[in-house]
Every structure is written in structure tokens, then in C-alpha cells.
């Protein structure tokens, strides 16, 4: 297992290297510079500024510099935002994003599993139909639409939650709800299909024939087995929560990474865009690594270094 994780970490760095290189050259290929809108700058001024950021060097030199910086954990300095180092920018904004991201993932996964399991157990009853309806809603309403709806009704009209504020847990509820709809719908659909399958399998029949009550059959045998494939969709779900959070953070004015990303794009702030892209990739790779480890923990058949025969 340790050997496996070490190998995965090596791959992690390799992947990051490739992503960093790709982002770097893609950025270089984009037209325009952060300064292209600033007509007030004279040619000389522009030259000075460019030199200051090292943009007067050849692309090759810039690339090597960037990669060396990356090795030292340095993502460069922002062209905007008071010329702060990109790592500092990310650091300041990490907490809110992580909080609503994690909350949304947890709420979505836990309730998705429950909803899917209940639908499967009450297959072909009104409970199932209702659960299916809810999960299809969750799947089909984009998070920003839901965010605006929640904001309008729960915050603006009924004044239950703040409209756009970031201070306490209260203010994280609406963005969390907006972001959790998609994972909830996805997990519920997946869970239902999987559990219906599991419930009709031979080992569930055997579990019943042992005298297990129906809730014990679900709790001890069906849930764990249905969860195995659900774990695999956590990765892709994390991606959609991350992309969703960019817009949702903007709607609720949450000082998070997503909001920063959108601002950086609108101001052509290359170092920040690159830094954030690399940071997002890093997060994703970590999520996938965790998913793989979880997978091994839940499913003994793929547990590694355990002398399994298959």
C-alpha cells in the first residue's frame, strides 16, 4: 500500500509538471497582455513594466524561470491585486472556498446516498418517484440558477439568510445548498441503480435467509456494496463543484478562489490564472488519490498488497 501511494505521488508531480507546462504555453499563445487595455501608458512605461515582470525575456527563459519558481512553491506575482504573490492570493482565499466546497460535497454525498438508498428500497412506489424527481431536478438545474433562486427567495424576499455576505456559518448555507444540488442528484441516481442491483443479488438473498431483519440487510450488506461504485464518481463530482463554485462565489460575493479566478480572467492576470489552474489541478489529483485509497478500503477485492488472488 505504501509503495502504491508513493508511486501515485510520483505520478502526481509528473502530471503537475505537464499541466504547468501546458498552461504556461497556452497562456503565451493568448493574444493581449494585462496591459493591453491601458492606453495611457507610453511605450517606455510599458517597457519598464514588462522588464519588471520579466516579460522582456524570451519565452524559453520565462518558462524555465516559472518552472524553477514552481519547484520552490512560488507561483509568481500577480499583475494586479497589489502585485501580491499568487500563493498569498490563493492562501487568503482558500478557507471560504474549501469550506463551501467541502460542505457541498458532504451534504450532496450524504443526502444523495440516503435518497438513492430509500428510492431503491422503496422501488416502484411513490417514494421512489419523488426521489427520482428530486435527483433529476438536482441534476438539471445549473448551480448558478439555483444560487440566484435561493438568493431571491430565502435571502431577499423571506430574509432568512444574508443575501451576499461572508462572516459566519449562516452565510455559507445558501452557497452550500446551491452547490450541493448537483452532487446530490448524481449520487442519488447512481446509488439507486447500484442498490437495486445489489438488492437483487444472491448474497442479499442469503443474508435474508439468515434471519436478518430488512433494515439489517440494508445496513450490514447492501449499503457497503452499493457504495463501491459511488466512490468512483466523487472525483468527477469534485470537478463540477469546483467549477460551480466559481460562479456561485461571485453571486454571493464570497471572497474565495473561484471569485478570484473569475476576476483574474477578466483582468488578464496571467500569473494568477496559471497559478490557480495549477492549484485546481493539484486539488483534483489529490481528490482522485483519496478516492482510490477509499475504494481500496471499501472493496477488499482491490485492496492492495493484501495477497488477494484476483
Amino acid at each position: 500500500m505504501t509503495k502504491y501511494i508513493l508511486k501515485r505521488i510520483l505520478y502526481l508531480f509528473l502530471t503537475l509538471f505537464i499541466i504547468a507546462s501546458l498552461t504556461f504555453f497556452l497562456m503565451k499563445m493568448l493574444p493581449g497582455t494585462p496591459f493591453s487595455n491601458q492606453n495611457r501608458m507610453s511605450a517606455d512605461q510599458l517597457k519598464i513594466v514588462k522588464a519588471q515582470y520579466g516579460l522582456d525575456q524570451s519565452v524559453g527563459v520565462q518558462y524555465v524561470r516559472y518552472m524553477v519558481g514552481l519547484l520552490h512553491g512560488n507561483l509568481g506575482t500577480s499583475f494586479q491585486f497589489n502585485n501580491e504573490p499568487v500563493t498569498a492570493l490563493i492562501g487568503q482565499r482558500l478557507a471560504p472556498s474549501m469550506q463551501i466546497g467541502a460542505q457541498a460535497m458532504i451534504v450532496g454525498t450524504v443526502f444523495g446516498i440516503l435518497l438513492g438508498a430509500v428510492a431503491a428500497i422503496r422501488k416502484n412506489t411513490w417514494v421512489d418517484t419523488l426521489a427520482t424527481f428530486i435527483s433529476i431536478l438536482g441534476l438539471s438545474i445549473p448551480s448558478f440558477v439555483l444560487a440566484v433562486l435561493l438568493q431571491f427567495y430565502l435571502a431577499y424576499k423571506w430574509k432568512i439568510y444574508p443575501v451576499a455576505l461572508w462572516d459566519n456559518f449562516q452565510s455559507s448555507i445558501l452557497p452550500t445548498l446551491a452547490l450541493s444540488a448537483l452532487p446530490l442528484g448524481t449520487v442519488a441516481r447512481f446509488m439507486r441503480t447500484e442498490m437495486v442491483d445489489v438488492m437483487s443479488s444472491d448474497y442479499i438473498e442469503l443474508a435474508k435467509s439468515k434471519g436478518n431483519s430488512s433494515w439489517r440487510v440494508v445496513a450490514k450488506h447492501a449499503l457497503r456494496n452499493s457504495l463501491i461504485p459511488v466512490v468512483t464518481i466523487i472525483g468527477p463530482m469534485a470537478v463540477s463543484v469546483m467549477t460551480g463554485s466559481m460562479v456561485v462565489e461571485n453571486i454571493f460575493s464570497i471572497p474565495g478562489i473561484g471569485e478570484q479566478f473569475v476576476k483574474s480572467i477578466t483582468t488578464n492576470d496571467y500569473p494568477t490564472i496559471m497559478g490557480l489552474t495549477i492549484f485546481y489541478s493539484f486539488l483534483l489529483i489529490i481528490v482522485y488519490l483519496i478516492v482510490d485509497i477509499l475504494y481500496g478500503l471499501i472493496d477488499p477485492r482491490i485492496r492492495l498488497g493484501n495477497g488477494g488472488k484476483e
Binding site: D202, Y203, E205, L206, K208, S209, K210, G211, N225, P300
Partner: peptide
């Protein structure tokens, strides 16, 4: 509930396919 007291206790069952009759995660 009364049936559950009988199943696996007084009357138990062996199934046809041993490859799929056991819970793979227990």
C-alpha cells in the same frame, strides 16, 4: 419478525451459486 426467528435458525438454506452467494465485502 416471527419468520426471521425461524430463518437461519430452525430452517436454513444453501443456494446454487457459491460464487455470488457470499457478501464480497465482509
Amino acid at each position: 419478525k416471527e419468520m426471521n426467528n425461524i430463518r437461519g435458525n430452525k430452517i436454513s438454506m444453501i443456494f446454487q451459486d457459491p460464487m455470488t452467494s457470499l457478501d464480497p465485502t465482509m
